[in-house]
């Protein structure tokens, strides 16, 4: 009988880029060792069997664990639709690209374009994330659902062209967070880089610790109570197990006026 879960341990940290996108819980869980070991992966310019790169052992049910990875391993969990994927170590670009239902947990940091075009599911990164988290790929689909939590620092342009879903940045976020946003919600704890919400049309960018002034293209609506934040808290708790305590009273700035947008920056009211 084929194991319902696998642990894949890299024999040594990859020295060249590895395309890990074929490693999906729904594909590997329930599949026999011989078939799993034979899955071909792009390793630099070569095609290498998974069994030559990783040691395989039986893992928890409906779970795929990747151990010993580093920033060269990219595309982890691409379009994964069910099960759980745990990365014990760092990961490269495009983690959870187009994710449509699975849960990804990265115990380390990730590269650029985390959760690009994500549709549903949950991604938790304990470390930092590169640029363009939850952003649309150039010419590709916007992030349209799901929950992403980044425990460390988030790079620039997080939520670029994001349409739906929730991004929580616990360790601050870089410049142009929420630029060109079309909808969805971004919560940033820690410092927020320059020009948040640049050219945003809709959506909400909540900054819990930082700036006291909004960009000139946003209009001050004053401080108000926002009941919908209770729904956001509940959604994060029930769907992703995230306990986020949000103040109900926030100062709202509407914009971005440069595009006639109706988005909002919500800053802590002092």
């Amino acid at each position: 009988m084929s194991p319902d879960g696998w642990i894949l341990r890299f024999r040594e940290p990859p020295a060249v880029t590895v395309d890990a996108s074929p490693l999906l819980p729904e594909r590997l869980c329930g599949t026999g060792e011989r078939e799993v070991a034979a899955i071909p992966l792009q390793y630099g310019r070569a095609r290498v069997a998974l069994g030559d790169l990783c040691v395989l052992s039986v893992g928890p049910p409906q779970t795929l664990v990747i151990e010993g990875s580093n920033h060269k391993v990219r595309g982890i969990g691409r379009k994964a639709s069910r099960g759980t994927l745990i990365v014990d170590g760092d990961a490269g670009d495009l983690v959870g690209e187009g994710l449509c239902g699975a849960r990804i947990e990265v115990r380390g940091s990730v590269g650029d374009r985390l959760a690009s075009g994500m549709q549903a599911g949950v991604i938790e990164v304990s470390g930092a994330a590169g640029d363009f988290a939850c952003a649309a790929l150039p010419g590709g689909e916007s992030t349209a659902g799901g929950i992403v939590r980044i425990g460390g620092r988030t790079g620039a342009r997080a939520g670029d062209r994001m349409r739906r879903g929730v991004l929580v940045c616990e360790g601050g976020a870089g410049a142009l967070t929420g630029a060109f946003m079309l909808g969805g919600t971004i919560v940033v704890r820690g410092d927020l880089g320059r020009d948040p919400g640049f050219a945003m049309r809709r959506g909400s960018l909540i900054a819990l610790d930082a700036p006291t002034e909004a960009p000139a293209t946003f209009r001050d609506d004053g401080a108000h109570e926002f009941l919908w934040l209770a729904l956001l808290e509940r959604h994060l708790r029930e769907t992703a197990g995230l306990d986020l305590c949000l103040p109900r009273r926030l100062r709202r700035f509407s914009g971005c006026a440069s595009v006639g947008g109706r988005g909002e920056l919500l800053f802590v009211s002092h």
């Binding site: 659902g145 739906r164 929730v166 909808g183 919600t185 809709r202 909400s204 919908w228 729904l231 956001l232 959604h235 769907t239 109706r262 909002e264």
Partner: peptide
């Protein structure tokens, strides 16, 4: 026109 939609799940 000032209404805002929020989708959670």
């Amino acid at each position: 026109g000032h209404q805002i939609a929020k989708r959670f799940g």
